[in-house]
């Protein structure tokens, strides 16, 4: 279930009256304005909207990478704004998996070592870490490339390694920021297949930011952002908007 009226209860992700302002050259820019969102576990949400509409900012706020100007974000019962420093880092390690447009792999580490990075922050033994990494690489179809460095992989393969890294610690939420933006259609489709599978088979809660309508079609719910506001609700009636929401 996805709601944008701010009246949901007990959802995995609860966002209330979220504002984000940036100051640039003495000018204050409203990136997000009074955004409400409730998302249950297992939902696959796509955010679309023009550049500067606040999609990536929303993702960053949900992942605890940035701090809201006002409002609250609650994920799995934790209010992110109340966390700071070590606790926020630990929370991210436990709950969030990030997939970036530019993969952001560490070039001097092999695929195996890149995927293993999040597990180094856990108490798992070396053999346990190895098992988890093998499973994650197997899931993205790169078990045979575990000893390859990023420069030895294609863009699509690099992104698959990045997905393996994002899921290896079994996070609560996957945040994908234009994961196919730097790939050709075929490679992009492979990535979307994997992400869809994570939603369908593993019931992962996924937030996907994209400019690509084809990619957005994979999501169960499509939300449009413009000028920091969720524009409207989907036509299938799965979520309820207030008149004020519609009036925006």
């Amino acid at each position: 279930m996805v709601r944008v009226d701010g009246k949901g209860t007990g959802a995995l992700v609860e966002i209330r009256s979220l504002d984000k302002k940036y100051r640039r050259g003495g000018e204050e820019i409203d990136v997000l304005r009074g955004l409400n969102l409730d998302v249950d576990q297992g939902e696959f949400i796509a955010f679309m909207g023009p550049s500067g509409s606040g999609k990536t900012t929303l993702l960053n706020l949900m992942g605890g990478l940035d701090v809201p100007t006002a409002g609250t974000i609650r994920v799995a019962g934790d209010e992110i704004g109340a966390l700071s420093g070590r606790r926020l880092a630990a929370w991210r390690a436990r709950h969030i998996g990030f997939i970036f447009q530019m993969y952001n792999l560490i070039p001097v580490l092999t695929a195996f070592q890149n995927v293993q990075l999040p597990l180094l922050l856990t108490g798992l033994s070396k053999s346990e870490r190895g098992d988890h990494v093998e499973a994650a690489l197997d899931l993205v179809g790169l078990a045979d490339r575990r000893h390859h460095y990023p420069r030895q992989l294609s863009g699509g393969q690099e992104q698959r390694v990045a997905i393996a890294r994002a899921i290896v610690a079994d996070p609560t939420i996957l945040l994908c920021d234009e994961p196919t933006g730097d790939l050709d259609r075929a490679s992009g489709d492979e990535i979307l297949d994997i992400i869809s599978r994570l939603s369908r088979e593993f019931k992962k809660t996924i937030f996907l930011v994209t400019h690509d309508p084809v990619a957005a079609e994979r999501a169960g719910t499509l939300l449009h952002l413009d000028k920091g506001t969720l524009l409207e609700c989907a036509a299938d009636g799965r979520f309820a908007c207030t008149p004020e929401d519609r009036a925006r």
Partner: peptide, 16 residues
Amino acid sequence: TGELAVLKTIGMNDPT
């Protein structure tokens, strides 16, 4: 810089 940001993103804390 980017790699350090990624390490922080995956949960590495500031002292580490």
